[in-house]
Design a protein around this nucleic acid. Structure first.
Lengths: 117, 117
DNA sequence: GCTTGACTTAGAGTTCACTCCAGATATTAT
DNA sequence: ATAATATCTGGAGTGAACTCTAAGTCAAGC
């Protein structure tokens, strides 16, 4: 799959795909004989996963580390799992904060309601 | 209250407090006769509110607009309420996305569990 | 009365996460 | 074969949200 196809599929620019590869946020993509990237389905699954995690605010450094370990093979599975557990805890905390802010927003709206607006 | 005291109270730098004032994210703070900011309790409540909302990702432009309207007086209450309702909807959507990502993270961790790690 | 330290302003600098550009090479259409 | 289009690389540029600097003012302590 070409970079343009993948870009379209996930709504990411080709520049961003190259950038993600450069910083190690997705694995190095294979090239054809003339040096042009050819994305596999597995590459696509990574891209989709990373997009989702980045969108939820997971830090780039945790994700690059995760990829790095993944590429080192099976013996890094435990460390990878620890990263996920750590990020899960942070995300739960974040969601809880957002829920608190949401409650506050609802309360403020309720005050405007009382003014019959 | 001086800028240093407020900065300490909310864990924000004095620079950030001046910056927030400059871009209209908090109201203009009154000065004493020698031009030095003197924060009232009401100013502090704004700062705390804005901090909380910014932390939840509410956009600066929505918040500056909210402040602007607030300073225009009671007749802007309805428009202010609409801003809050709009941001509440966006925040609910965001929380729901984060919950989806959290589920995905849990699922991935569960897979590592199955490998007895 | 002089130094020290907190404050003021305008504006420059920093970091992050892209986003764009220039120049080169490759593929596709005519 | 030529023109148009897509890709490559390294590196420069961008916008958001601060963060820092310089040069100056002011009150308090010695």
């Amino acid at each position: 799959m070409t970079i343009a196809e993948v870009a379209k599929r996930y709504g990411i620019s080709a520049d961003t795909l190259r950038y993600y590869e450069k910083i190690g946020l997705i694995p190095r993509i294979g090239r054809n004989k003339s040096g042009i990237r050819d994305y596999t389905e597995e590459n696509c699954r990574w891209i989709e996963f990373i997009r989702c995690m980045r969108n939820a605010g997971l830090p780039i450094d945790a994700l690059t580390r995760y990829i790095e370990l993944f590429q080192q093979g099976e013996e890094t599975a435990e460390e990878r799992k620890l990263i996920l557990i750590d990020e899960k805890a942070k995300l739960e905390k974040r969601i809880s904060e957002l829920n608190d802010t949401l409650d506050r927003l609802k309360l403020k709206i309720a005050k405007y309601d009382k003014l019959k607006l």
